[in-house]
Design a binder for these strands. Structure first.
Lengths: 329, 329
DNA sequence: CTGAAAGCGCTTACAG
DNA sequence: CTGAAAGCGCTTACAG
């Protein structure tokens, strides 16, 4: 910029005015400056700009896995809102490892992002307190923060689970299994809670062999489902805890001889084209992301209301697999 | 940092040494500095650091759509390589709009990212020449750069298309349709070229009614496929140009009375569970992303070899839909 | 082992 | 309409 000023024979401030489109420059001066910029190939360095101005015009997104079909529309929605607010987006995957979430979030804070949208992997977010105190707005999405008060945008997981299980019960099922993600993951806990509540509300006992929490690795899900689906007390229906589990369950059930009803949490592409179509409780990941990001930018615009929790509903989409009757076998 | 130095009764440089873990500080001094950091809640500002050091330890990724199931594993792979190299990732979607690609890429350059991985939407990348000259490493992925020489990591699209079409011909098909993305998208052009080459190599004429290029909107794909599949010269097989087209084609064909064979470019989740399973030419998006990002970091490490083009193979996965015989109807 | 000075490339606040 | 000075928060190069 100094070189541009020298070449154009003007002061630094005048170059700054031209670069930023500020008023108070004659057309003649402006064209001299522009010519110098062109000749020198000048490109403004935003790092320097950021150092002087307060905001960096960037936000950070930390989630489990950028490639997951549930989280990728959420990411895209956050990105769109960021763009609409003139911000760039840093994105990073925690891979469900708490230390990685913390490392990523703190690295982003050191870059002085204006705000953070986090799908937590950690169960203790006190590490963020100094950052939040220093003014970095933070909104949690899909799962709430732990051990701090913070904004959160969630799906009504327990409610959705109750709907799913009540639907299976209404179709005659009594022995209903649940396979979900690892306990301590908020969504997994909420969904198993909804499952238990719905069973209890209908006077049905839950046998602990029918409940399996522990990660979404296909081998694990396959083994657990095959175990639940065999023996004299075999389940006649499964409520699967998320899209990763559902996909494996569909695969296992397609090889199975006796029909087992299935309702999955989370919708997924082509669910309607399978035979039977897969009945799901659909979340709206793009809406989760959009809502969280919009809340973040309201905070950045000065909204200082107490931390709020927004809860979006899940929606039952019957497609066949959840309407299979409970045959006595 | 000034405050920390004052409180600890040391110089600025000593604080800097402690914060960066540099040697040459006595244990006693260090603990005084750490106490001051703790008491003041000091957090280093990386913007200032970046301004002094050359590198920003960040790279940018510009692609069509973060939420697309083809691009999201690619993003994740780029992110992993960035992390392994100590870099943070900016991610942005161009939505296939050239101006948006340019705007994003230039915004990233103004932030002085060390490098850029781009899935191009634009057909003229000369706008990047000053940036590349200024030292921003750039690698194109999935599609090559236009009008500049640059590194590119691609799938062998024409070869994959030839394999797909030859496969259909081997199963007795002569009237084979192609529905692809908009012309001028490199991958779409390459795939239609492979289609034409394979047809010609087998002495088959291509009727222009069987070829449709123009975006992946479901309504468009549906209308084109229904047109091709009707009348006396109806196609008996379809080669679909990407995963978005394939998904709609599967949906349309599932409502269709006469069986039409299908081979799709790009694999997708649950393709094996549909009836029939969907035969595809599988790309490896994670490997594309990883290869591109690794090449980028080699460039950042000083590799100054001429721009190179890496081409990864596509792989035919027969699952049933591509092996349907050509019935005479 | 430690620190004072200069400077990275901008913007802010002010004066003319 | 225009510009000189100070400063954002660090690191570099140097001296002690």
């Amino acid at each position: 910029m100094k070189d541009v000023a020298a070449r154009a024979g003007v002061g630094l401030k005048t170059v700054s005015r031209v670069v930023n489109g500020e008023p108070g420059v004659t057309a003649d001066t402006e064209s001299r400056v522009r010519a110098a910029i062109e000749a020198l190939g000048f490109r403004r360095n935003d790092s320097a700009r950021i150092l002087r101005k307060g905001r960096t015009a960037s936000i950070g997104l930390v989630l489990e896995d950028l490639a997951d079909p549930f989280y990728s529309p959420l990411s895209r929605a956050v990105e769109e809102v960021a763009r609409a607010n003139g911000s760039l987006l840093f994105a990073g995957s925690s891979a469900e490892v708490p230390e990685r979430e913390e490392e990523l979030a703190l690295a982003l804070c050191a870059r002085r992002v204006d705000g953070l949208v986090i799908v937590p992997a950690s169960d203790d977010h006190r590490y963020l307190e100094p950052e939040i105190a220093a003014g970095i707005a933070t909104v949690f999405v899909d799962r709430p923060a732990s051990r701090i008060e913070a904004d959160a945008v969630l799906t009504d997981n327990a409610g959705g689970a109750r709907t799913a299980v009540a639907h299976l019960i209404a179709h005659g099922h009594r022995r209903i299994g649940f396979i979900g993600d690892r306990p301590h993951i908020h969504t997994a806990d909420e969904r198993v809670r909804g499952y238990r509540e719905a069973m209890a509300a209908h006077g049905l006992a839950v046998r602990e062999e029918w409940v399996s929490m522990g990660g979404t690795a296909p081998e694990r899900v396959r083994a657990e489902l095959e175990r639940m689906a065999s023996g004299p007390e075999a389940i006649t229906a499964l409520f699967s805890g998320n899209n990763r589990v559902t996909v494996t369950a569909v695969r296992v059930l397609s090889e199975h001889d006796r029909p087992i009803a299935l309702v999955g949490f989370d919708d997924f592409e082509l669910a309607d084209l399978l035979r039977p179509g897969v009945t799901v409780i659909a979340q709206d990941p793009a809406r989760l992301g959009r809502t969280a990001a919009e809340l973040l930018f309201r905070r950045l615009d000065g909204d200082t209301a107490p931390p709020q929790r927004v809860e979006l509903p899940g929606r039952l989409i019957p497609r066949g697999s959840g309407e299979l009757p409970a045959l006595q076998h």
